[in-house]
């Protein structure tokens, strides 16, 4: 399996190369000129040209692309056109809030959705099943920002239990850090809970029909033992797959959630950079997201072997 993991990690290199080429080319052909934004309304065309030249934006596509790739190979993601800060520094400033939000959302979602799905499958056709599936439909249907505004209104403005917005770094204490993330994680987790709960229920229903479950019951295994030791373990592979796929969902949702709750994370950094055409930042963040996504999928593939011993790499 170690050799497999190494092979997969090596295989990420061409994937990242394609992503890099795609991102760079897309930004190159997209409209928008950071030099014009910087120069402002009163700048003459000559001023804009001088700024464009000072930023290196007047050079040919291949020269710019080559330089960018060479710098990445050396570990340099470039410098923000606007803030003059290294992109790596900007990412480092923003990665903790996004990572915190995603991890808490993941724990919250898995912790709630898997038991929900299991119980819904166990109580198939009852009001519990219908309630769980009703919640799942709601989770899919109500946009993250609507849930976010509602939560902020009720729990921050009306009840005054939690802050409306912002982020406190973990280094300033666990509770201040956590209290800023409760509402965003619940808002972001809704769709994720719905997705995992539905897939858990569907997979569990299939597994619960298997002969070995009937055998276990015949041998006198208790209901919780059947559900969580025998059935869930065998239903885990599709669930883990969906959790992995859902990371992309989380990344997309984080952009909206970070805006609604004013969390200074990578999602907002991306949106801000796109709006002002800060090319090095956009390229750096998208590369990072792609890399994380590839790694998560690798991790999921490796996890399969834990749940299903028949799978060997």
């Amino acid at each position: 399996m170690f050799a497999y993991a190494i092979r997969r990690i090596v295989a990420t290199i061409p994937v990242m190369a394609v992503v890099a080429l795609f991102v760079f080319s897309l930004l190159y052909i997209s409209p928008g000129d950071p030099a014009a934004v910087i120069a402002g309304d009163q700048a003459t065309p000559q001023d804009v040209e001088r700024i464009r030249a000072s930023l290196g934006l007047d050079r040919p596509y291949l020269v710019r692309f080559g330089e960018w790739v060479w710098n990445i190979v050396r570990g340099d993601l470039g410098t923000s056109i606007f803030t003059n800060l290294p992109v790596s520094t900007m990412i480092a400033q923003r990665i903790e809030p996004t990572l915190s939000l995603m991890v808490i959302t993941l724990f919250l979602a898995i912790g709630i959705a898997v038991p929900m799905g299991v119980v819904a499958a166990w109580k198939q056709g009852t009001w519990i099943d219908r309630a769980v599936m009703g919640f799942a439909v709601l989770g899919f249907s109500v946009p993250v920002f609507v849930v976010g505004y509602l939560l902020a209104y009720v729990f921050a403005l009306e009840l005054d239990w939690l802050p409306v917005q912002g982020y406190t770094p973990f280094s300033r204490g666990m509770w201040p850090w956590f209290q800023n993330l409760i509402l965003p994680a619940v808002a972001l987790g809704g769709v994720y809970i719905a997705l995992i709960a539905r897939i858990t229920r569907a997979t569990m229903l299939e597994v619960l029909q298997q002969d070995y479950i009937r055998t276990a019951r015949a041998k006198g295994v208790g209901q919780s033992g059947i559900l969580f030791l025998h059935a869930l373990k065998n239903a885990a592979v599709p669930i883990v797959t969906v959790v992995g796929i859902g990371v992309a969902l989380l990344i997309g949702g984080a952009v909206v959630t970070e805006s609604v709750f004013a969390i200074p994370g990578l999602g907002r950094l991306t949106v801000d950079a796109i709006l002002r055409r800060d090319y090095p930042v956009i390229q750096g963040v998208i590369l990072l997201f792609s890399f994380v996504y590839v790694l998560v999928n690798l991790l999921i593939d490796l996890l399969y072997t834990l749940f299903d011993p028949r799978i060997r790499y």
Partner: peptide, 10 residues
């Protein structure tokens, strides 16, 4: 804070 509603709530 980019979101006007969030700014108002804050």
């Amino acid at each position: 804070i980019t979101d006007a509603s969030t700014s108002a709530a804050a």
